[in-house]
Amino acid sequence: MHNCRATKTILIELAAGDANQLPGEFKNCAACREEFAALKNVLRAADTAIHLAQPAEGFWPGYHERLRERLQKSQPTSGWLPPKFSMIHWFRKALTTSIRVPVPAALALLVLLVFSIFFAMQTRRASSAGSILTPPSIITKTVEVPVFQEKVVTRVVYRSIQKPSREVTAREVARTRDYRQAESAVTTQGLEGFKPANQAKVTLINGSYRNEK
């Protein structure tokens, strides 16, 4: 059912547009026809007023003279540049270019951006925590250290010399004499020409002492 109130906005659009005649739906409605004609009259009156408000011819020479004076004082800021070399223009255009994005798409992009930032932060935090928990890597290096296995052992040897008692028998005396002779022979001859060895061979038996390593 045709409703004049509902179609009022359409009539305004039609009148404001270039349409001079109503479409078929509205032609059969007298109210719509009158409304459309009234709107067209309003627009015609507005156009007439706009045209009438133009200044008279005598206004323009003075206007152009004033404009010429202002233009003479002003100079183009950057002079003339061939279009292909005007990088500033391209840079400015790149900075100021905008595109229209539907609101749902913009919201979806925004949510995606927020989630990506969130996940990036989470991943970074997890990786940093993982790096703390993992044991440090062991690098095995063989370093040659000179080991001196030579040992100089100084040993003091005590010898006990027993003197014979008075109640010794003749045999014992004889033995004692022999012993003394032998001892004197040893003391005089045995140590002569003795040279301590440069190397001493020490054999350590592990476990013979409590704290031996």
Partner: peptide, 10 residues
């Protein structure tokens, strides 16, 4: 006669 739903344009 602006106001009503008219039958002209059914």
């Amino acid at each position: 006669n602006e106001c009503v739903p008219c039958a002209a344009g059914e």
